[in-house]
Amino acid sequence: MTRSTIELTPTAEDRRIARHAAAAIVLTVAEAAIPLPLPGVKPGLANIVTLIVLARWGWREAAWVALLRVLAGSLLLGQFLAPGFFLSLSGALASLVVLGLAMHLPRRWFGPVSLSVFAAFAHIGAQLVVARLWLVPHDGVFYLTPVFAGAAVLFGVVNGLIAARLLRALSAR
């Protein structure tokens, strides 16, 4: 029998994705410790990382980071394959699609804050649809839409501002 060794050599891109995903996972876990008045209303701090990766390294890496974050974050929080996991996943997928479209807006006019607000709305939109179709098959789910939309604007702006500031600091370095 011959001994076979499979060597995986991570590329610089792999390391970068892992590093960013780790930062996003830390934020996800830290955020889970914040008590929140309503289920579903979360700051979504990990999206700051997604925005930064999107601006600096492109959509493909941002998608990797966002999806790894959803997967590993749910494993760490014991939510893997629970309803919350599918809500996170659908939100992340929808916001990646929207970010992929919105990133082509003229940068001079639309900064990270716009992208962040768009992504936040995509997040709640997808989560409401999944919740309506699967978890709570009743239109009552939509009753809280104004609250979720308000949270999307608020946290979208806050996350976007933080991302913009970090991007400025990173590009100045």
Binding site: F110, P112, F118, A149, V153
Partner: peptide, 26 residues
């Protein structure tokens, strides 16, 4: 200073959407 002109538009649109959702659903 981190906000660009279009960002204000997007924020305003988001707030309008909230108000519209509140007005129709509540």
């Amino acid at each position: 200073s981190l906000l660009r002109p279009g960002d204000w538009l997007v924020i305003a649109a988001g707030l309008l959407l909230c108000a519209y959702a509140g007005a129709t659903l509540w």
